[in-house]
Simulated scan of single mutants.
Amino acid sequence: MEGRDHARHEVAGAPAAEPGRAVSDRRFTKELHSAVRCAAALLAMLLLIDWGAGDASPWRAALWCVLSLSLFVVLCPRRITAGEGWLASRGLLGTQRVRTDLLVSVRCLDGVSHRLVFRDALGGRVELDPQTLVDNPDLWHRLYEDARTSAELGCLTCGETALRRVQQRVDRETALTVFKVSGLE
């Protein structure tokens, strides 16, 4: 069984993942630090303006702290993690989890920001930015293997087109990266 899984990963162009190993979004730490820096910069700027204008007071400082904290909450990224048979999105207020081997639908929501919504047969729901999957091939291939399992079982009734679009984007980005590294741009 392991040999077949290993061969499938090599055919898909991804490094073979260890069974049971969870993969995470590699950009999470960078985005978290960026959110902290933005909130701290806003707080420092507002306190400096108050101090320069002579309007500094404890109440205004508390208000600026609340405003900066609100900015951090808005900018704080969700931590996307996937393992064999599951996908989780953890934010400040909780975790969303979906069984990827029991997916029933994958929908692409268009709007101000593109989102992929995964739903499983147990009622689980996870929403994420497709760019997260494009930027993290390990995460994409772990998810894609389980989505194929769902399709083979007949669970995945809607979403193969959305998955195919993400696959095309991942392939395009991988090819561009290979061209850049090899100097063939």
Rank of each mutant, 00 (worst) to 15 (best):
G91E: 12
E84D: 15
S89E: 06
V104K: 09
R97L: 15
I80L: 10
L133Y: 00
R148E: 14
R148G: 15
T100K: 05
R79I: 10
D120C: 08
G123Y: 00
G124W: 02
W140V: 05
Y144S: 10
G123P: 06
W140K: 11
T95N: 10
L87P: 03
A121E: 13
L143C: 05
V117E: 07
L71Y: 00
S89D: 06
S70Y: 06
D110P: 05
V112H: 13
L103E: 00
L102C: 09
L92G: 02
V117Y: 03
G94Q: 10
G124Y: 04
L133G: 03
R78K: 15
V106C: 00
A121S: 14
P137S: 12
T81C: 09
G123T: 02
E84F: 13
G91V: 09
D110H: 09
W86I: 00
S105K: 07
D120T: 04
Y144E: 14
F118C: 01
S105G: 04
F72I: 02
S105V: 02
R97A: 14
H114Y: 10
D146N: 13
L103W: 01
Q131L: 09
H141E: 07
A88M: 12
V74N: 09
R90A: 15
C76V: 13
L103S: 02
D110R: 12
W140T: 07
G111Y: 05
L103A: 04
P130N: 00
T100H: 01
R78F: 13
E127W: 07
L133W: 03
L103M: 01
I80G: 02
L103P: 00
G123F: 03
L122M: 15
W140M: 11
S89K: 07
D135P: 02
R107A: 10
Q96N: 15
D135R: 04
H141C: 08
D138G: 14
L128M: 11
L109D: 13
L143D: 08
D146Y: 12
I80T: 00
C108H: 06
L128Y: 03
D135K: 05
W86Y: 08
A147K: 00
R107M: 10
N136H: 00
R148I: 13
L102H: 09
L75R: 13
V134E: 02
V106E: 01
N136F: 02
R90Q: 12
E84R: 15
I80S: 03
N136A: 01
R99W: 04
R97V: 15
V104F: 02
D146V: 08
D135S: 05
S70T: 04
V106W: 00
H114E: 14
Q131S: 10
R90P: 04
R107C: 08
V112P: 12
A121Y: 07
E84V: 06
V73A: 12
D129S: 13
W140S: 11
G111M: 08
R107P: 06
P137H: 11
R107T: 11
D129K: 05
L102G: 03
D101V: 09
G91N: 13
E127G: 11
D120R: 07
W86V: 04
P137D: 13
C76N: 15
V134Q: 03
R148C: 14
R97I: 14
S105W: 00
R99M: 10
D138P: 12
R97Y: 13
G85K: 08
G91S: 11
R148L: 15
R107F: 01
